[in-house]
């Protein structure tokens, strides 16, 4: 379609493009600041004026995984030369790696354990929530259920509760049965939290698969279960993948339950990372390095999910 553009429209469009770029810069600055701080030496993390251009270093990442102590006097050349590159980086910053006195082994920092906990809890709870959610969504999509809307509302309402409200009784119950500060305890909570989400999203995806596909299979002699397994599931695969990524992100980012239901053993990264900023002078570059590694998977997933974000964020209500 040929459009005649007036000068005014062209100017308006240019202004809009400029405004979008300004907005983009403003919106991304906090994220850029985390990422760039992660590659700054400690001395440049909190300078006045702020350091924008600098030579990136991996020192914060080297420091992130090990326990360190401030050195009184510089390390002798021989030890320095014998040390691996990452330990040399730590020496360069005036700190040394804390080692076990007897075995000489490196003492790891708490970060990797928390990261591992985050992975375990998020992956298992995602798997459970998505598999149960898909089945339930199929049930609601294909069969008549009396009071269907009420059940769906009930399922959704469990998710709308503030975490603290659920956490008070759950804490007491977990303490009684010994699930406090365990992976299983968090997995159960996150599964329950994500289950309602996954039912709602998956119902949307399954509703979109034409019933005729299954009916044709049933006529061909498939049982209902076979039709579900061989026809519906493959068709729903994209939806299942998108739902899984969403559930993973939600569990991965969850903070309140993790703060209230774990102490040390099962603590995930979100409550751990802020706890590093105590009193005194926090080492922001190391905290940023930890945050960077923690945020990176979600940033990647956001790009993979980009076509499903609308559906996911609106609980499947808006599809486009």
């Amino acid at each position: 379609m040929a459009e005649v553009k007036t000068t005014r429209e062209v100017v308006m469009n240019r202004a809009a493009i400029a405004a979008v770029f300004v907005a983009l810069i403003v919106m991304l600055t906090p994220i850029y600041w985390i990422a760039s701080t992660a590659f700054k030496p400690r001395s440049l993390a909190t300078t006045v004026p702020p350091t924008v251009f600098f030579e990136p270093t991996l020192t914060p990442f080297a420091k992130l995984f090990v326990r360190r102590s401030q050195m009184r006097e510089p390390v002798d050349q021989e030890t320095y030369d014998a040390a691996p590159w990452w330990e040399q980086l730590i020496y360069d910053d005036g700190e040394s790696v804390v080692r076990n006195r007897r075995s000489g082994e490196i003492t790891p920092s708490g970060y990797w354990d928390r990261y591992k906990n985050s992975l375990i809890v998020s992956i298992i709870s995602t798997f459970l929530a998505v598999s149960m959610g898909t089945l339930t969504a199929y049930g609601f999509s294909r069969f008549k259920v009396k009071g269907e809307n009420d059940w769906l509302f009930f399922i959704l309402s469990t998710r709308m509760l503030p975490p603290v409200v659920v956490a008070i009784p759950m804490f007491l119950m977990y303490r009684t049965v010994g699930l406090h500060d365990t992976h299983l305890g968090l997995i159960i909570l996150y599964t329950a939290f994500n289950l309602s989400f996954s039912v709602w999203i998956m119902k949307g995806f399954i509703d979109e698969i034409p019933r005729e596909y299954e009916e044709a299979a049933l006529v061909d002699g498939y049982t209902r279960l076979q039709a579900f397994w061989k026809i519906v599931l493959p068709e729903a695969l994209t939806g299942i993948a998108a739902t899984a990524v969403f559930c993973f992100i939600i569990a991965w980012n969850e903070y309140a339950f993790a703060l209230m239901m774990t102490n040390r053993n099962a603590q995930t990264a979100p409550p751990y990372i802020p706890s590093q900023v105590g009193s005194g002078l926090p080492d922001w570059s190391v905290i940023a390095a930890g945050a960077f590694l923690f945020l990176l998977p979600v940033a990647i997933f956001t790009f993979l999910l980009r076509n499903h974000l609308l559906r996911g964020m609106s609980f499947g209500a808006i599809r486009k």
Partner: peptide, 17 residues
């Protein structure tokens, strides 16, 4: 997609910064 990034990242960790 870039503009949508803030809402996808952990509120606790980004909030901290």
């Amino acid at each position: 997609t870039l503009l949508l990034l803030p809402m996808m990242l952990s509120m606790a960790v980004v909030g901290l910064f």
